[in-house]
Structure formats: structure tokens, C-alpha cells
Design a binder for these strands. Structure first.
Lengths: 137, 137
DNA sequence: CATAAAAGTCGTAATCATTCCTATTTACAA
DNA sequence: TTGTAAATAGGAATGATTACGACTTTTATG
């Protein structure tokens, strides 16, 4: 999903497109990895001097509910990135820079065979480590 | 890993086996799912009336470092369970009762082919939902 | 046993991410 | 342009976790 698509989703659903909402989307569309709220706060404070936590977290949740942002829990902090909605896949996540690489393999189809009579809501397959550019630096 | 094995690991590494350390291990060996610190605190308070956070978290970290406990991040809370060290596998986790079911399939071998030049430290494959007994209740 | 050093624990304060609250401001439809 | 529901500000509250100095227990050793 890109910036314009995200704004369209917002408008279609009847949400207002405020300056800060656009700023938040621009922030994530300029990154290609998972980012914690604190990075977003730091970014917006450069422009506005101060920003309400409420604005940050309300919009992060809204975007997540609308499918605009993906979320993952990394060491007690929620991290977000723009959804890559084109197809189902998982991520390698660099623990230094937060950048992600798509992993095409998904083990759910075989795993489901082991889970008859279970209700499945969600699943997570993530690989952690260091990406080539962080290894060289 | 069972209670006695865990105590052995503790002794082998030169750590003292105090009453509270045994209590903590007994707590986890009596459960078969991931439990948050707050459940452990509630359990120990029944016996001791009050317990220091320091004792709880210090020992949870120690056990995790020693490989006695496995850890996962669930909605901003760290959850722990006794390691099932016999072989590599993953878990289904019930979001109601916390109980887990082992999943044998692991996609890492195929995923690694997509990650040449990456340093891989860890990976997580978890399936979330509701277990049969919670579905019936 | 006695005992002392090391390791563990206590009680509480501090920290950090996140949530909550009320007053004020803003986007946008009419 | 204006009315109003939605959004934001500013800061207090919450909940999990970490930190710390003082005190207590475990365990090795004589």
C-alpha cells in the first residue's frame, strides 16, 4: 500500500484527512521497515514541537484497524509498517535498522492439518537477525 | 523440561536453589501454557502475602537466559512457559486460557534459501486462536 | 556446627509505553 | 459561511517492567 492508497481508504471510510494524519502516513511510506511509536513521535516533534500521545496512538490504532498499517510486538514495544497488501507473506526483520524483507514461504497450510477442532484467528512467522547492509556497517 | 531437570540446571550453573526459585519452577511446571508475570505474582502472593517484583523479574530473566523458560510477547506483556527442549517445534497459543499445542512444521529450512547474506538470530512461528476446550466452554 | 562471603530478596521508587480525560480546535458537509 | 461531529492538545493515570540500597539467606569452608 502506498501513501495515496492509504489516504483513499481513509476518505472512503469517512475519516477526516488532517495534516497530522497525512504526516503519519508520509512517515511510514518513507520507511521500509517496522517502526515504534517513539520514532513517529520524534519525527512529528521536529515539525510541530510537541504532539499529543493521544493523536499518535489513536491514529496508529485507526490505521491498524483499517488495514493500512501492520503491527508486531518487539520486546515490549509495538512496531508498525505500511501494509503490503498485494499478497500473503511474512517478514525477516533486522534488529538493528528495523528494515524488513519479504519471506514467501508460509507454513499455515501444513500447520492447519495439526489443528482440527481449533479456531484459528491469526498467526505470526517472523525471522530476526541482521540485514546485509547492517552487517557491513 | 521438568521441575527436577530445571533445578539441576540451576545447580550445575552455580545458582542457589532458594525456596522462591523452586516455587517459581513449580508454578510453571504445573501449567501447560504461556503465563504472564502477573499470574506468577498472584500465585506467590497466596503463599507469601507479598513478593518483590525484583525477585519475580530477576528470576524470570535468569530462567530465560538459562533456557529453562521460553518467552513470548503477547499484547505488550511477556509470557513464559517451561522449555520443551526435546526437539524443535512451535506453538499454537490459546488466547483465552494460554494453553499451547505443539506444531511440528517449521518453515525455516525453506525460508533460509530466501535469506542468503543475512545473519539469522532467531525466528518465531506462532498460531493464535481458541483451543477446543475453550470453544466448548 | 559456626560463620562469612556471595548471592538472593525486600520494599519502594523510577521508567517507559500506552491509555484515558476534558477542553479546545478543525475539517467538511449543508 | 457556518454548525457540528470528529480530531487534537495537554497532561494525568495506568500497567508492566526495571532499578537500587538495605537487609536476609544460602552455601562453601574450617
Amino acid at each position: 500500500m502506498n501513501l495515496q492508497e492509504a489516504i483513499n481508504v481513509l476518505k472512503e471510510k469517512g475519516y477526516k484527512t488532517t495534516g497530522k494524519r497525512k504526516d503519519i502516513l508520509e512517515f511510514f511510506s518513507s520507511k521500509d521497515g517496522y517502526r515504534p511509536a517513539k520514532d513517529l513521535i520524534a519525527h512529528l516533534e521536529k515539525k510541530y514541537g510537541a504532539i499529543s500521545f493521544d493523536t499518535i496512538y489513536r491514529n496508529l490504532h485507526l490505521y491498524h484497524d483499517l488495514g493500512i498499517l501492520e503491527k508486531t510486538d518487539l520486546e515490549g514495544e509495538k512496531h508498525f509498517r505500511l501494509s503490503c497488501s498485494h499478497h500473503h507473506h511474512h517478514h525477516f526483520i533486522c534488529r538493528d535498522c528495523g528494515k524488513t524483507k519479504e519471506i514467501e514461504v508460509c507454513p499455515m497450510d501444513t500447520a492447519l492439518a495439526e489443528l482440527t477442532n481449533y479456531e484459528i484467528d491469526d498467526h505470526k512467522f517472523e525471522i530476526y537477525g541482521r540485514c546485509p547492509s547492517c552487517l557491513n556497517a
